[in-house]
Each structure stands twice: as structure tokens, then as C-alpha cells.
Amino acid sequence: MSAREKSWKEIAPAGVCSRTSTTFLTGDWKTYMPVRDLEKCTRCLLCVLFCPDGAIHWKQEKSDIEFDYNFCKGCGICANECPTKAITMKVE
């Protein structure tokens, strides 16, 4: 993004959204953050699928999952759905 704000003549007409929302970090909304017990986690990947914010990524090269705290809103769905209860919600 340029330092100067674009004028109305330069922006996309009719309110076309032009920036990807991945540049808008929603991670600061959270009160609780998920913490994972590496021993208990079986890498079933259910949390990756159920996360409403896409904030849990499957890293193929590490064959492990990774939380993206930039987007996690701390809802706790991952902790609630974890079959082995490997995720706990801690105050940030």
C-alpha cells in the first residue's frame, strides 16, 4: 500500500472491494487463546476443518498443525471439538 491515500478518482468504482482480508488481522479480538498439548494431539485435523477463521493450518513439511494467532478470535471451538482434549483455552 502506498503511503498516500488514494483519491476518489483512483479507487475502484461502485465500492468494489480491492484488498484481501488476510491483511486485516482479527487476532486481537481474543481473550482466550488455544494451547495444544503435543503429547495428546493425534493430528486428526478436525480443528483445522472446524475453525471458523481458518486460523489453524496444516503444515505438510512439518506434518504438524500450527495456530495462526493473527486471526484466532479465541472462540474455543477447537478445544471443544478436540477428540483427545489436547487443546485448552488459556487467558491470553
Binding site: 482480508s21 488476510t22 482479527t26 479480538w29 481458518g54 495462526d68 486471526f71 478470535k73
Partner: peptide, 10 residues
Amino acid sequence: LSGHRACAGC
């Protein structure tokens, strides 16, 4: 994509 403004737990 991530970064949408839905409520937590949506």
C-alpha cells in the same frame, strides 16, 4: 479467507 469480521464461534 481469514480476516473476515464474523463473531467468534460463528
